[in-house]
Design a protein around this nucleic acid. Structure first.
Length: 615
DNA sequence: GCCGTTTTCGGCCCGACTGTTTTCAGTCG
């Protein structure tokens, strides 16, 4: 879970990683232009979050600050583009939970004119750079504001200088210890602003669990937090333990290799900094509280806020120790907490898969008894995106087939790059047909798995496909991908992708947004239009399972599901081990609320073809 | 600033830990 006050850092992270785009420079650049179209949900949400950060810095009413954060989240989680919603006269923004008259008016103004008067005014009194101070562990809005107001500190460099000169300790509420803590936290602030991929976190988690489980004192152990919810990136790890001797467990925890320092240690809680980049928290709870604590620390924060509100309505109080009856305003009698299911049951709710706990649709689904039966890994029958040494893969056709068969897949598509991707030694029509002959031979030789003749064909910069229709028509499976011209305008890229979907031989668009998590923002794209055309044309959209891509993201998966567009989860493997990435895609699909039925490659190859309208 | 089976005002989630403070504010999750 992220703390509310920590959201400032998240906002900065988003702002610095390409959420702002050319022509709409937010701060320090040319003034915003007037835009009637093209403003993305992410940009609107980022602006609202920035308002919240600045208000927090000013010491504004915390509930007003929260209202802006809630509004930002409502916009960020929208399955449709905000521009599409505003263009629809039947839609009222105020119908969205968390958006009232005031926010609706501000958002509309921002989307239609590119101006956000309140944000501009706030930034006149507080430089945006001051928010970087909040990255330093231990520095929240109050202390950071004191540093800015009393010492004029605006940047991390100025903060370091003030520490070195011993100025910080002179301020009321600060002392030498705080000054030293800031100094040692400064280096961390510079590097620790990036969340790690879930897949990397998983490696650490498995190793950490193995280390901890050798302690005989432990009766139950789970990892909670955003890791358990399967978020695509993880900012820290939350380890939960039931143990007979808490201090023994904490000692074991502290002995985990590469623990740099202990940040805090009390009776039930311990935090460490690991390997210079990751905070790991440990909580030790008694048996009767394990389920309540697991629920509490799994979050999300917003899901838990809804839950506690629900508890209050029933005269109950819910915290990490359990669910309690309230008597004269004080928690009185413990009534649940051994398991998560117990906690939810007391609130007349079903147990929610952790991936759905984001306060998006899960409570509505629970009330209407439409909670989706989320897809599981064992439902996947085929993998329809992988490469071989014919292009940029690192294993032969036969090696990939053997690896796929060993993983129990019933069919795979070999989809090497087309010639436009010259760096990857992409295939022209002749080489592709030659590979397909090899695949025919392979199919005669191998039993128990069907190998499909496919290609990942580039969508050219000027539009159109990289291979002629007569070649594509001979393939079993044609993936269309954008690899070049990613900086084109929204209109251009949208037209290219829609054009590909309308090509009668194309089956699917791969990694539709083009993003690389933490490295490259998605390209400008009207995703609503893409989903709409895919639905019209009877085509599929890929959920690329590569941990650095996970493209589509969770909310777009939900939008595709809502539109009835089948998703295909593919690994895009470039070597045999790459096939194991499927589970990351499954996890992302679960976050999008997808069932096995929503995912085309849970079907047999023949059943999948019946879903697809392709010549 | 939002919201309403406590409905147009008065609430808004909760606890552990730390440091500076001698009873609590700030930070964090």
């Amino acid at each position: 879970m992220r703390a509310a006050s920590n959201d400032a850092a998240a906002t900065l992270f988003r702002a610095e990683h390409g959420v702002c785009r050319a022509g709409r420079t937010r701060r320090g650049g040319p003034p915003r232009e007037a835009y009637s179209i093209g403003m993305t949900n992410s940009e609107v949400a980022t602006a609202l979050e920035q308002v919240a950060d600045l208000l927090e810095f000013q010491g504004a009413n915390p509930f007003r600050i929260r209202a802006y954060r809630n509004g930002a989240r409502a916009i960020r989680d929208l399955p449709q583009q905000i521009t599409t919603l505003l263009a629809d006269p039947a839609v009222q923004l105020t119908n969205l939970r968390g958006i009232g008259n005031d926010l609706a008016q501000k958002i509309t103004e921002f989307v239609q004119t590119g101006r956000f008067a309140m944000l501009d005014e706030l930034l006149e009194s507080i430089p945006a750079s001051v928010l970087t101070l909040l990255r330093v562990p231990g520095l929240g809005p109050k202390k950071a504001a004191a540093l800015y107001n009393q010492l004029g500190i605006e940047t991390l460099d100025q903060l370091r200088e003030a520490c070195v000169q011993g100025q910080i300790r002179k301020l009321k509420g600060f002392a030498e210890t705080t000054e030293q803590a800031i100094l040692s936290g400064l280096d961390l602030a510079v590097q620790a602003d990036q969340r790690i991929y879930w897949a990397e976190a998983d490696g650490i988690v498995q190793d950490l669990l193995a280390h901890m489980k050798s302690s005989s004192s432990i009766r139950q152990i789970e990892v909670a937090g955003s890791f358990r919810r399967g978020r695509e990136t993880v900012g820290d790890l939350d380890l939960l333990v039931e143990a007979a001797r808490p201090q023994t467990v904490m000692n074991r925890f502290g002995a985990y290799p590469d623990v740099d320092c202990v940040l805090a240690r009390g009776d039930t809680k311990m935090s460490v900094r690991w390997d210079g980049r990751l905070q790991i928290d440990l909580r030790v709870v008694p048996h009767d509280a394990f389920g309540a604590a697991l629920q509490y620390f799994t979050g999300s924060k917003d899901h838990n806020v809804v839950l506690r509100g629900r508890a209050r309505q029933r005269g109950l109080k819910i915290n990490e120790w359990g669910v309690f009856q309230v008597h004269e305003g004080r928690p009185d009698k413990w009534i649940a907490g051994k398991t998560e299911a117990d906690v939810y049951a007391v609130l007349e709710l079903p147990w929610f898969p952790p991936e759905l706990r984001e306060a998006r649709d899960e409570f509505h689904w629970a009330e209407t008894h439409t909670l989706p039966d989320l897809i599981r890994s064992d439902a996947i029958q085929g993998d329809l995106h992988m490469h071989t040494t014919a292009s940029d893969g690192r294993a032969s056709l036969q090696e990939m087939v053997d690896a796929a068969k060993a993983r129990g897949l019933k069919y795979i598509a070999i989809t090497d790059h087309s010639k436009r991707v010259s760096m990857a030694h992409g295939l022209d029509g002749d080489r592709l047909r030659s590979q397909w002959k090899d695949i025919d031979q392979c199919n005669r030789r191998v039993t128990g798995i069907k190998v499909l003749k496919g290609v990942e064909c580039d969508i050219l910069e000027k539009g159109g496909m990289d291979l002629p229709d007569d070649v594509l028509s001979e393939a079993d499976w044609v993936i269309a991908s954008v690899h070049y011209g990613q900086n084109q305008s929204r209109d251009q890229i949208t037209k290219r992708i829609i054009g590909a979907l309308r090509n009668p031989h194309v089956s699917i668009v791969a990694h539709p947004s083009g993003r690389l998590i933490n490295r490259r923002a998605p390209y400008e794209l009207d995703m609503d239009a893409v989903i709409n055309v895919a639905r019209q044309e009877g085509k599929f959209l890929e959920l690329n399972a590569n941990p650095a891509r996970l493209d589509l993201d969770d909310t777009t998966c939900a939008a595709a599901r809502q539109a009835g567009v089948p998703i295909v989860i593919s690994t895009d493997a470039h070597h045999p081990d790459g096939l194991d990435a499927m589970r990351y895609g499954i996890q992302q699909a679960r976050r999008g609320g997808l069932t096995a039925d929503d995912v085309a490659n849970t079907r047999s190859w023949s059943a999948l073809q019946k879903l697809l309208r392709r010549k």
